[in-house]
């Protein structure tokens, strides 16, 4: 069961602010959806079944050749200081 405290914790892990008055609705909806997902639990698969995964041969990777990117990739950054990007400080 997903309760209000669990939603609060998930919101913390995901760093998403949720208004207190919305917590209950989220809890109810998420609970219903997870109850549906629970059918996966009854699925009986042996350990031999490999989870779905994409594989590649060893040589299908990128060569180690540097190429500089010329465009201004910081053009979308709004909080800057010189060439640095400003970010919030880790709270002490």
């Amino acid at each position: 069961m997903v309760g209000i405290e669990e939603v609060r914790h998930l919101a913390y892990l995901a760093r998403i602010s949720i208004k207190d008055e919305e917590l209950r609705l989220y809890a109810e909806q998420m609970d219903e959806i997870l109850a549906y997902f629970n059918m996966l639990d009854e699925l009986n698969v042996s350990d031999d079944v490999e989870p779905y995964r994409m594989c590649r041969a060893y040589n299908e990777m990128r060569d180690d050749v540097p190429v500089a990117f010329s465009d201004n990739v910081l053009s979308n950054a709004k909080n800057t200081k010189g060439r640095f990007i400003k970010a919030p400080k880790m709270s002490s």
């Binding site: 998930l10 892990l13 995901a14 760093r15 998403i16 949720i18 959806i33 709270s91």
Partner: peptide
């Protein structure tokens, strides 16, 4: 404070996106 910054900014996702992110987190 950084966690507050993240949470405030990311609070601007729509409700369906928030729901799916939290379920995915779960």
């Amino acid at each position: 404070a950084w966690n507050e910054f993240y949470s405030t900014i990311r609070g601007n996702f729509g409700s369906e996106v928030k729901r799916r992110i939290m379920l995915g987190t779960y």
